[in-house]
């Protein structure tokens, strides 16, 4: 009996790959996956390479990624060197000419919008700096709407039959973003600010004009020293705010700072759940907005 189920499963897999969606799309993260679903709706189902609780900068290339990329028509990455430790290796090993950077099959979100933190000294004494700009564009819903529009055009070129679907999907997403951004702007007006672990949510803060009160790691990619924490506490003492850190960042320093400052501390992933679509993505942003808005003095 189990053998028959296995046969059936294998059959499903094989037929599935034949009858599957018009394009095989691979997204590096769940935020890019959500964007693909927002634009393409039911038409495409992306394969996602990294879960929302993973540090995309520390991830390593795996054979399963190469397998997923092997037959892909399009890879949707955040880009700007965020995935530099593994995506180039995975793409190279996937032996798929269609998805090499520069080809139609390679889409980089960060290349579609203006970036923050561009330039600066290319000096590793300042930690793991990337002069090309801060890559974490996926936490800004307005930029994501623009990226969605660009993605729709790319999908339309690869799959002309679905062009209308993609364009209207991107449009609907942009409208949804607009509606909620208005609300969020109102809720976040005058928010006292956020203390982040790493400059990974600056796009969101910048969008809603929420002050970034500091980062717990004083140098990107290097854990803070006791002195750093002491200085932060001294600087921020008496002010209002909230500490937000990602699941893969160490919880001790955020907890200690929050305790010393009398603030709330929130552990929030940078990306939405794996199965998120456009709405799921916006709900994820809403969690961030809730956390930031709750930090009233």
């Amino acid at each position: 009996m189990p053998f028959r189920i296995l046969i059936a499963l294998v059959g499903l897999l094989l037929t599935g790959s034949v009858l599957a969606a018009p394009l095989d799309v691979v997204a590096t993260t769940s935020s890019m996956g959500a964007l693909v679903r927002a634009v393409a709706g039911e038409r495409l189902e992306p394969t996602i390479l990294a879960g929302p609780e993973r540090d995309l900068h520390q991830l390593q290339a795996k054979p399963s990624m190469m397998r997923a990329l092997r037959g892909a028509d399009l890879v949707v990455a955040i880009g700007a060197e965020l995935e530099v430790g593994w995506l180039p290796a995975a793409i190279n090993s996937a032996a798929n000419p269609a998805i090499q950077p520069g080809q139609e099959g390679y889409f980089e979100a960060a290349a579609q919008v203006e970036l923050l933190d561009v330039g600066g000294a290319a000096d590793r004494a300042l930690g793991d700096v990337h002069t090309v700009g801060n890559p974490h564009v996926d936490l800004d819903p307005v930029r994501m709407a623009r990226i969605a529009a660009a993605l729709a055009e790319r999908l339309a070129r690869l799959d002309p039959a679905g062009a209308e679907t993609y364009r209207s999907g991107a449009n609907a997403f942009a409208h949804a973003v607009e509606r909620r951004v208005t609300d969020w702007r109102a809720r976040l007006a005058g928010a006292p600010g956020v203390l982040l672990y790493h400059r990974d949510a600056v796009y969101l803060l910048d969008r809603f004009d929420v002050p970034l009160l500091g980062t717990i790691e004083s140098i990107p990619g290097v854990p803070p020293s006791g002195q750093d924490l002491l200085e932060l506490t001294n600087t921020l003492k008496g002010r209002a705010g909230v500490v937000i850190y990602a699941p893969y960042q160490p919880p001790q320093a955020p907890a200690k700072l929050a305790r010393d400052l009398g603030w709330r501390v929130e552990r929030l992933p940078l990306a939405p759940p794996l199965d998120a679509d456009g709405t799921g993505y916006l709900d994820h942003i809403e969690r961030w907005v809730d956390a930031i808005a709750a930090a009233r003095p």
């Binding site: 530099v84 520069g102 390679y106 889409f107 980089e108 290349a111 579609q112 203006e114 890559p135």
Partner: peptide
């Protein structure tokens, strides 16, 4: 945007009539 590092067939200038969101090919890199 920093497109200096763009390689390949980056289409930056929208052609008239097809003035939808232009998407950019290639990877940003320092």
């Amino acid at each position: 945007p920093t497109v200096a590092a763009n390689t390949g067939t980056a289409t930056i200038a929208p052609t008239s009539g097809a003035a939808r969101a232009t998407d950019i090919l290639g990877a940003l890199s320092s």
